[in-house]
Write a protein that binds this DNA or RNA. Sequence first.
DNA 1: TCTGGGGTCCTAGGACCC
DNA 2: TCTGGGGTCCTAGGACCC
Length: 427
Amino acid sequence: MAPVFALVDVNNFYVSCERVFNPKFDGKPVVVLSNNDGCAVARSNEVKALGVKMGEPWFKMKALAKQHDIIALSSNYTLYGDMSNRATAILRDYSPDIEVYSIDESFLRVESVAHLHGGNAPMGTAIKARIRQWTGLPVCIGFGATKTQAKFANHLAKKNPEFNGVCDLTAMTESTRSAWMQKIDVAEVWGVGRRIAARLNVMDVRTVFDLVNMSPTVLRAQFGVVMERTGNELRGVSCIALEDLAPTKKQIMASRSFGEMVTSLHGLCEAVSWHVDRAAAKLREQASAASAVYVFVQTNRFRSDDPQYSGGTVIPLTDASDDTRELSAAALNGLKRLYRSGYAYKKCGIMLMELSVKAERQQTLFDNDEARAKSARVMAVMDTINRTWGRGTLRSAAIGNVQSWRMRAEMRSPRYTTAWDELPVAS
DNA sequence: TCTGGGGTCCTAGGACCC
DNA sequence: TCTGGGGTCCTAGGACCC
């Protein structure tokens, strides 16, 4: 049976999550801001219509916001993560072959199950209705013979009301499909970014249709194997498989901009320790160990009058580790080498690198089994406590208690679905 | 005053091996 | 006169995704 992929995607995901609990936001212009209330990372259709671009700094749109009563909200990742899990759980009822591609998108293989619902489109309509009813979230669904086609179909479903949120490319005739492809800008294709779109335009390739009609050889020669694949995928030749098992990460990063500038080494140490705590917990979650830690610091590159400095350094570990204390010690050592006084720092972060499967760790000459076992027990206790009582309940003392560098989130909605004291109340 | 935080893959070139 | 053929590993940079 030929593969059929579906892409299910929540419309304006973060904004939609907020609207579920605040229906008064319906029909109003709403933006959700990035960490630190910095940039717009989600926009309602009303805000998009006002011309606000993805990633636009909040301070630059404040005048517009005032003029049009734009509602701005800080990111509430706890809420979005939980809502995402709920939507994904519903999708698993429809197909066992699912790849959770991002917080608001999943790919499904449906060729073996669609007939249970009377075909692709009816299945899409059923999914859409159930997610709406059970979570309150609006989704669009695209079907295609490949992932790239499903993405394209999803785009059509989202932008053209006549599809009612469900578009099945596999049910279209060749000429209908071509007609749609002629209407859509090549830059919308999954895998075509800003740079490649510009180069394609120079070659007078402007629509999806133009791209589909380019020869694979030319695509390969001009843009490489990735674009050749994209071209084939658009033509219906499946090259990108469904990744139902999420591969373990090859690097784990944790970084944040500061709510207010940090000048002291002490302040940077606190922040770096906090990042290590977060990253190390993720590392243990995927049962990996890191062989190197990268740490970096940056001043505010937007304030060009201020003295600028940015530096990073990799600290190799003699032995792969997943122990927060060892990783932290390495990172702080690196930080001390990097630190220059007299600068106002805006951001710092760490990256855990050269990850390996912990159970397959290479032994060293100086292994101390007893110390290893003890470390594993301490980390297990720490993770259990934090899983039960919330992240950060048990943490490195180096993180401190004051944390003036903490990011801003002044307009965050309650964690309606995950915190007992923040549940919505019906009166 | 104020500008996010994660990730992946591919390619080319250099250095090295036999 | 004439100068092989096959590899690996690492790094930097560029592109993409959400």
